[in-house]
Amino acid sequence: MSTPQQTRRLDALTLEVVELIGEVVARYHADYEEAAAVHALTGAQAKLLGLLSLEPLPMRKLANRLKCEPSNVTGIVDRLEARGLAERRPDPADRRVKLAAATEEGRRVAKSLRESLRFASEPLAGLADEEREVLRVLLRRMLDQ
Rank of each mutant, 00 (worst) to 15 (best):
1 M>R: 09
5 Q>T: 14
8 R>G: 08
11 D>S: 11
14 T>D: 09
14 T>K: 09
17 V>S: 09
18 V>H: 10
18 V>Y: 08
18 V>K: 09
19 E>C: 06
21 I>G: 11
22 G>C: 09
22 G>M: 11
23 E>S: 10
24 V>C: 11
26 A>D: 15
27 R>Q: 14
28 Y>V: 04
31 D>N: 12
31 D>P: 09
35 A>C: 08
39 H>Q: 13
44 A>S: 11
45 Q>L: 02
47 K>V: 03
49 L>Y: 05
49 L>N: 05
49 L>M: 06
54 L>G: 10
55 E>L: 01
55 E>A: 05
57 L>V: 01
58 P>R: 00
61 K>Y: 00
62 L>K: 00
63 A>R: 01
63 A>E: 01
64 N>Q: 09
64 N>P: 01
66 L>S: 04
66 L>R: 06
68 C>R: 12
70 P>M: 04
70 P>K: 03
72 N>K: 08
72 N>W: 03
72 N>T: 08
74 T>P: 00
75 G>C: 04
78 D>S: 13
80 L>K: 02
80 L>A: 02
81 E>G: 07
83 R>E: 14
86 A>L: 02
86 A>V: 02
90 P>H: 05
91 D>N: 14
91 D>S: 09
92 P>I: 10
92 P>T: 10
92 P>S: 12
93 A>Q: 14
94 D>L: 02
95 R>Y: 07
95 R>H: 11
96 R>C: 01
96 R>F: 04
97 V>H: 00
98 K>D: 00
99 L>A: 00
99 L>P: 00
102 A>L: 01
102 A>I: 02
103 T>P: 04
104 E>N: 13
106 G>N: 05
109 V>L: 05
109 V>H: 03
110 A>S: 13
110 A>C: 09
111 K>E: 07
112 S>F: 01
112 S>Q: 11
112 S>M: 04
113 L>R: 02
113 L>T: 06
114 R>M: 05
117 L>V: 13
117 L>R: 09
118 R>I: 08
122 E>R: 12
123 P>H: 07
123 P>R: 06
123 P>K: 06
123 P>I: 08
124 L>M: 15
126 G>V: 07
127 L>Y: 13
128 A>H: 11
129 D>T: 15
129 D>Y: 14
129 D>S: 15
129 D>K: 15
130 E>G: 06
130 E>F: 06
131 E>V: 11
131 E>Y: 04
131 E>A: 15
132 R>D: 07
132 R>V: 15
133 E>Q: 12
134 V>W: 04
134 V>P: 01
135 L>T: 07
136 R>Q: 09
137 V>A: 11
137 V>Y: 07
138 L>W: 05
139 L>K: 01
140 R>K: 07
141 R>P: 00
141 R>E: 08
